[in-house]
């Protein structure tokens, strides 16, 4: 194992981490602000990837990837807003179990919808032309598309930070994560904040899905898979903690990248071991209190 190989593998882990950050940050925001575990969260990731597949088919004069990069997150934000307003909102004043059941059902509906529209076969998407090269690291070629993902991750994190800590909407999100009832009593329509957070989380998950579309096979069921991984990230980081989700994703990314070398088919075992270790030492996760 030479140093260049280790470096390439490290970058690999970083790319995996960026995808997990995009998904886990939305999941943890939903937990922290709305207080719901959204089983359907991975569905937006899957839809993002499938929508990118369709855009790739249409071509759009070679611009399909870049068009999708902007429009897919927006489209999914809109879908999510409708879902939140029509399906989730009526359940907030009921027991939490109803919301859980609903999002669980939604996850299945999303999968079936994808089956219906795109069929059962694996789909693949070409790497966009601009990102199809590779940079050499020693003797290894590291795909440019991975570099792109590694760049997009921190950019999105910075934007998210700006949104949360420098805008009025971010202030409302942080306030809602500690006390929604009081926020309402101060004149804020908390429902709108919830809709905004739900739409935001879906856009982030969709972004992750469209980013990985060119580098993996696209199937219904990929949503559940990523949901489990990103939920582990959230639990390790501490539910509701954005910083925790980022640290957790970076950790899991590296464990996946290097774990695959040790046990090619059982890399998930290392993830579960880390999860177990963290929960034994810090049962509420690394940054386990309700924070955003």
């Amino acid at each position: 194992m030479d140093i260049a190989f280790v470096a390439a593998q490290f970058l690999n882990g970083l790319a995996i981490a960026m995808i997990l950050i995009l998904i886990a940050s939305g999941l943890t925001l939903l937990l922290g602000v709305l207080g719901i575990l959204n089983f359907a969260h991975g569905g937006f990731y899957m839809l993002g990837a499938f929508m990118m597949f369709s855009l790739g088919q249409w071509g759009l004069g070679g611009m399909w990837f870049w068009v999708g990069l902007i429009t897919i997150p927006l489209a999914l934000a809109l879908v999510a807003a409708v879902v939140e307003i029509c399906l989730l909102r009526p359940l907030y004043h009921r027991e939490r179990l109803y919301t859980l059941l609903l999002t669980f059902g939604l996850a299945m509906v999303f999968d079936d919808l994808a089956l219906l529209i795109w069929g059962r076969d694996f789909k693949t998407v070409p790497v966009p032309e601009l990102l199809s090269g590779a940079v050499s690291i020693g003797n290894y070629g590291f795909p440019l598309h991975f570099i792109f993902i590694i760049v997009v991750g921190p950019v999105v994190c910075a934007l998210l930070w700006y949104l949360l800590y420098r805008t009025p909407f971010g202030k409302l999100i942080r306030a809602a994560s500690t006390d929604t009832e009081m926020l309402g009593a101060l004149g804020v329509n908390v429902n709108l904040v919830f809709t905004g957070v739900f739409a935001l989380s879906a856009a982030l998950a969709g972004l992750a899905g469209l980013l990985v579309a060119p580098i993996r096979s696209i199937v219904p069921g990929m949503g559940l898979e990523i949901f489990i991984e990103s939920f582990i990230v959230v639990v390790i980081g501490g539910m509701g903690s954005l910083g925790g989700a980022i640290i957790g994703a970076l950790l899991i990314g590296q464990i996946k990248a290097f774990g695959i070398l040790a046990l090619p088919n059982f890399a998930m075992i290392f993830i579960y071991l880390v999860l177990l270790a963290v929960l034994i030492v810090k049962p509420r996760g690394l940054f386990g209190e309700k924070t955003v």
């Binding site: 009025p168 202030k171 409302l172 942080r174 306030a175 994560s177 500690t178 006390d179 009081m182 926020l183 309402g184 009593a185 101060l186 004149g187 804020v188 329509n189 924070t291 955003v292």
Partner: peptide, 30 residues
Amino acid sequence: CRKGIAFVPEDRRIFSRLTVHENLEIGAIR
């Protein structure tokens, strides 16, 4: 609230993750 009634709860219910200044801004945000 928007009709002009303010509620000051007995357990204060400050937004713990917001600064003092931000807490005041929330009071005027709508």
